[in-house]
Design a protein around this nucleic acid. Structure first.
Length: 473
RNA sequence: GGUCCCAUCGUCUAGUGGUUAGGACGCCGGCCUCUCACGCCGGUAACCCGGGUUCGAAUCCCGGUGGGAUCACCA
């Protein structure tokens, strides 16, 4: 909450992706910070598509970004707005800036400006536009740009929520272009006008924007507008400490969905990467909304660690109710050609797999044997455990289980106790052949929970099939 | 190179002048045990360096070093 005298102004945040690709992990994190802060304070979260680079922007990217946000459960209260649809608004503000003397037309060509830069560089100075048209009072003409008249002296201070106060010498800033010669607005102008007109008062973004901020502040001032609060969060780095990029592997949020990560886990991990709440590592979505704050945002860059995210994913898989997990598992089962239409059965299956699945892809693969009619026998497992010595025990197991009036854990325990007594075998000697008979492999959930989930008929049927297999050897 | 930001175990981090520097991931042991896991117990491992300030610095200041960002008629 932001108390401002006697008026309470709601927090308004935004996420402004460029639709030039998929929503990547780093972008998702900034979106998350803004979204959480808005939700936490009961404010508003606005989505804006910065598509003014029409050559690189695509509709497919817009769709991909929206879908990724939806999958993560990040919803927006306004938008998506598109900058390409707001060109007249920018023009109006640029005109106003020229009229009030805060900006001017400049007829210098790019070549001429380059020459100025080189001249400055030759003198050991910072390469900048030299302000030649600044006091000319030029009118609009073809190939004319608009530049902001920036202060020549003094400092512009960014009061940053996460970095603290940062001062920039105005002498370091040249009269930068706010409108191109084709009449379109430049990034810094468009952003400020958008944020201003959309009522955005809190801007959390990557610290690669920190250097843009004094320029934007100058525009706010020229417009006579109040400044929003800025918070620049550090970048996310790859394992080689370089800024996260394609070559670091899975970058897009969508890839994590495909690899079997839960949106809650992705959110949990991303937020923890650069924000903390004491020693707490596991957060539900509600936890996050309740506990997120700007005070505990980290100031140093962090490396993306997929192993830790995977560990967190495992925890979220365990924490969910089987029924709630099912909708997330189903698509992965479908990828394996499994049509799991029986919800009760699937919930039971999931429950047995929860403690032993790090991803939903793993879970689906491990669940496969439950659904197929005849699980394929692993060669080595069958050779080792489905032996002629095991046959008698398996036959007895099939017979006794089939005769069971109630298919319960207690009843199964009785069956195995009896087999152990009759055969003199230990439980392990019985369980492994049985496991191979029923699942085809040596690895599965615990015998009882697994058989119980599978059901009596399938259990008996599979044991008998294994016996037949032994007899055919 | 100029400007700006950053600096605690390998990684993510807690810490806001006095702690045996805590937690998590990973790794290594052990327990549990019908396999694999889960879980539990224990261990490994850090305050970048140098100066100050202070009775006392991971914490404050300065310098160095290292890493990152940015220097467009891109966003």
């Amino acid at each position: 909450m932001c108390a401002n005298g006697d008026t309470m102004k709601p927090i308004v945040t935004r996420f402004p992706p460029s639709p030039t690709g998929f929503l990547h992990i780093g972008g998702a994190r900034t979106a998350l910070f803004n979204w959480l802060y808005a939700r936490k304070t009961g404010g508003k979260f606005i989505l804006r598509i910065e598509d003014t680079d029409e050559a690189r922007s695509t509709k497919d990217s817009v769709d991909a970004i929206l879908e990724a946000l939806q999958w993560l459960g990040i919803d927006w209260d306004e938008g998506p707005y598109f900058q390409t649809e707001r060109k007249e608004i920018y023009s109006r503000y640029i005109e106003k800036l020229v009229e009030t003397g805060h900006a001017y037309y400049c007829s210098c060509t790019p070549d001429e400006v380059n020459t100025m830069r080189e001249a400055a560089r030759a003198k050991g100075l910072k390469p900048m536009y030299n302000g030649r048209c600044r006091e000319q009072g030029l009118a609009w003409a073809d190939n004319t740009v608009v530049r902001l008249k920036t202060p020549v002296t003094g400092v512009t201070v960014v009061e940053d929520i996460v970095k603290g106060d940062t001062a920039f010498q105005n002498a370091e800033m040249d009269d930068f272009i706010i409108q191109r010669s084709d009449g379109s607005a430049m990034y810094n102008l468009a952003v400020v006008v958008d944020d201003l007109t959309m009522g955005i008062n809190t801007i959390i973004r990557g610290d690669d924007h920190l250097i843009n901020t004094p320029k934007q502040i100058l525009i706010y001032r020229a417009l006579g507008a109040d400044l929003p609060a800025f918070g620049h969060v550090p970048m996310v780095l790859g394992p080689d400490k370089a800024r996260l990029s394609k070559r670091h592997g899975a970058m897009s949020v969508d890839e994590y969905r495909k690899m079997g990560y839960l949106p809650d886990a992705v959110i949990n991990y991303l937020v923890r990467l650069g924000w903390s709440h004491g020693d707490q590592e596991f957060f539900t979505r509600m936890d996050l909304i309740e506990k997120f704050d700007l005070e505990h945002l980290g100031r140093s860059a962090s490396m993306f660690d997929m192993e830790k995210m995977t560990a967190l994913n495992a925890k979220h898989i365990q924490a969910k109710e089987p029924g709630a997990l099912a909708p997330f598992v189903l698509p992965h089962l479908q990828d394996l050609g499994i049509d799991a239409c029986d919800d009760t059965f699937t919930s039971k299956v999931i429950e047995t797999l929860q403690p032993r699945s790090k991803t939903l892809v793993e879970m689906a693969a491990a669940a496969r044997f439950y659904y197929v009619d005849e699980p394929e026998l692993d060669e080595k497992a069958a050779a080792k455990f489905l032996t002629s010595e095991a046959a008698a025990m398996l036959i007895q197991a099939a017979d006794d289980i089939e005769a069971l009036p109630e298919f319960t854990q207690a009843a199964l325990e009785d069956v195995f106790t009896k087999i152990m007594a009759d055969s003199g075998l230990g439980f392990g000697k019985i369980a492994q052949p049985l496991r191979v008979a029923v699942t085809g492999t040596t690895v599965s959930p615990g015998i009882f929970e697994m058989l119980l989930a599978l059901g009596k008929d399938k259990t008996v049927q599979r044991i008998r099939r294994a016996v037949a297999w032994i007899q055919n050897q």
